[in-house]
Design a protein around this nucleic acid. Structure first.
Lengths: 386, 386
DNA sequence: TCTGTTGCCGAAACCGGTTTCGGCATCGAA
DNA sequence: TTCGATGCCGAAACCGGTTTCGGCAACAGA
């Protein structure tokens, strides 16, 4: 007496179903000769239903293609079987390139549980809170994924106060004595990646390695910088504060910080960037100064955006698997909503290195590099850059 | 007796609301000394409610911060006040760069009506239909935005068959005698943009202008190619089928088609690309052949992806405003769901030209260019390209 | 045989809204 | 004065599920 739409795609023709007749729990019950309360309990795993009845109900439900309306369930259960994410669209860098893959991962994972994903956007931090508030008020979702966590994140305080489930993409509370309790998160260990980047460059015999970090309001910025310092320590290289810059989020900012580092009396022969975007910003600067990337100056990025592949030379970088991240976050969040303790829902992944041609052994010492740069500056002194 | 969460952000402290007490329609009615049916009808614009009562109800609702649960309404009305979009994540090009802006536009517009947006992803055309089916079955949305419309689009047939509202981002049915009836859409006139591109190049005195189109399964591919032909006609230039290539969706494919065009006996001195990605693919080819873009070979793209700005030289292109597109699509779709006739909900926007350095007057004739390319090919013959 | 559990299921209330239906005033016209 | 509209509102049914509660039958123990 009819299959669900998904099946119909295969069966091509519906069996004998009356038009537009969605199968309701009532129909299912009538067909089975049971009451709808029994059917409901059978489908929802109540213990007071015999195993044989449960099987009967389940097979018949499958046969008729019965699917409960999540919003009809929600009115009683308070669960809409949906998770949400609000993007901050005003961020200069955005997570543009990752977004598609990230959403795909999250949606696929959610679909696996028969959940859906609703998204929304905001234009500022304050706006984000308002959007969250609206979604919570209307109960459009049972929980939230919070991307780009800050060291001190207003969204966390807000949702915790309202007692709404959430999971972080990233960690939070850097530098706090007590780690944030009762919080679930998924993150990629940027600190590990950056440490490896430093060690890789040290292995190339670089001794002056610079670092360009991102906005310190984000928690990951601190962790990646720590990775840089750790790497230097392990490699036995001295830490020189002059070689560390922060706050580069865009290509332009990456270019500016690169210029600053390369303008030093003793410039670095290699630079690790906290983001690919900032690293790509260095390309124009290097070209303007007549430096060959991968020889005169080595560069390693982080993120794994597609442009790395097309840059000349290709940018060596650490790839984060956004698809997997989205999938894990959705899965962990749903498990949390279903009752698991947030503290047990924490995972740390690793970024994978993609070796390209932007790094290698230094062709010049720091002093020689400085000299070359000085000459270039005199020479062009009107060169366009950006 | 309490304000809603959104207000609380401003008021900082809730007035005197009991914890976790969402205001329900019952509370509102009790507070007003009315029945909840009256309150409901007042809020929903029924004619049998006096104007004074309506005002009273509305101000009290605002004061208490009452917001109906959309899923509670849905159970009776059948409307969840949500629109959905399913992305095809397997497309080689995706609409990656536009996605964030597009979603922002759509979400903002939907929010303005107090609607929300749910999204999902699929991995193939067939999968897309299954995902759509699931969303329709569970009625997770009242209507759909269909991105990247094909000439012959299975999604359209599917949703039309189910009588579910949808709107196209793009047109459909290219070449059909009868335009598709009862269909709403929003599109950017790619044909106009490409025509302008051709005229611009003709104005630079190019006489052999090539065209690299996209996959002809998409409707826009045909329209843009038409724009190319129209442009040639207006400029009084002959149409040479040799100069037209199709099917380039990625950088790599764009590179391959560029190579094919530049390898002709009488190569074009300018090429119009249907997409920026394909145009950027030409950059590596030009470099390999020792051609200066903007002089030896002129290039114009379409889309307005960020990379255009960072390519060297910058890529002249036609920008589509994805944010505005998302906003219009959401708005038109909601209006359609609310009852307006689809045929009246059609809009065509224009892309805006951003002039950069990738096009200009030809430095060489087609013959001279051919000679130069031949030499380059002999010379390098082992050059890397991609 | 009687009683008390236990297993399993149905009846009915419930969730938070919307919509139908009918009834009470009020008013104008006959 | 009576009657029929009309304006305005409340009671109750309804939407499609879930959950509580109670009851019947089968069974074990006394």
């Amino acid at each position: 007496m009819g299959a669900n739409l998904t099946n119909r795609l295969d069966v091509s023709v519906a069996e004998n179903q009356q038009i537009s007749g969605r199968v309701k729990i009532h129909d299912l019950a009538a067909r089975l000769g049971l009451s709808k309360s029994t059917v409901s309990r059978a489908l929802n795993g109540y213990p007071d239903i015999s195993e044989t009845t449960r099987k009967r109900v389940e097979t018949m439900a499958r046969k008729l293609g019965y699917r409960p309306l999540s919003h009809a369930q929600a009115i009683r259960t308070g669960r809409v079987r949906a998770i949400a994410m609000v993007l901050n669209a005003d961020e200069p860098d955005g997570h543009n390139p990752f977004l598609q893959e990230f959403l795909a991962g999250a949606c696929e994972a959610a679909s696996g549980f028969d959940w859906t994903m609703t998204i929304s956007t905001a234009r500022s931090e304050q706006d984000t809170l308002k959007v969250l508030a609206r979604l919570v008020e209307e109960h459009k979702a049972d929980g939230f994924i919070l991307p780009r966590t800050a060291v001190n994140d207003a969204r966390i305080r807000f949702l915790r106060h309202l007692d709404v489930p959430f999971i972080l993409y990233g960690r939070t509370g850097y530098g706090c004595a007590t780690p944030p309790a009762n919080t679930s998160w998924f993150d990629i260990s940027g600190e590990t990646a950056i440490r490896k980047a430093v060690l890789r460059l040290a292995g190339h015999n670089h001794t002056r390695i610079g670092y360009v970090g991102s906005d310190l309001k984000f928690n990951y910025s601190h962790l990646r910088r720590d990775g840089y310092v750790e790497g230097l320590g392990i490699a036995g290289l001295p830490f020189d504060p002059e070689l560390v810059r922060n706050g580069a989020r865009t290509r332009e900012e990456g270019a500016a910080e690169s210029r600053a580092l390369l303008g030093l009396d003793r410039p670095p022969t290699a630079i690790v960037f906290a983001t690919d975007l900032a690293a790509l910003g260095c390309y124009g600067v290097a070209t303007d100064l007549g430096l060959k990337i991968g020889q005169d100056i080595s560069i390693i990025g982080y993120d794994g955006i597609p442009e790395c592949h097309y840059a000349r030379p290709g940018l060596t970088t650490f790839n984060v698997d956004s698809h997997a991240a989205g999938a894990r976050l959705a899965t962990l969040l749903i498990r949390q909503i279903r009752g698991e303790a947030p503290d047990t829902l924490r995972e740390l992944g690793e970024a994978s290195l993609t070796e390209r041609a932007s790094d290698g052994p230094p062709s010049l010492t720091s002093e020689e590099l400085a000299e070359k740069i000085t000459k270039s500056n005199e020479h062009i002194s009107g060169g366009t850059n950006q």
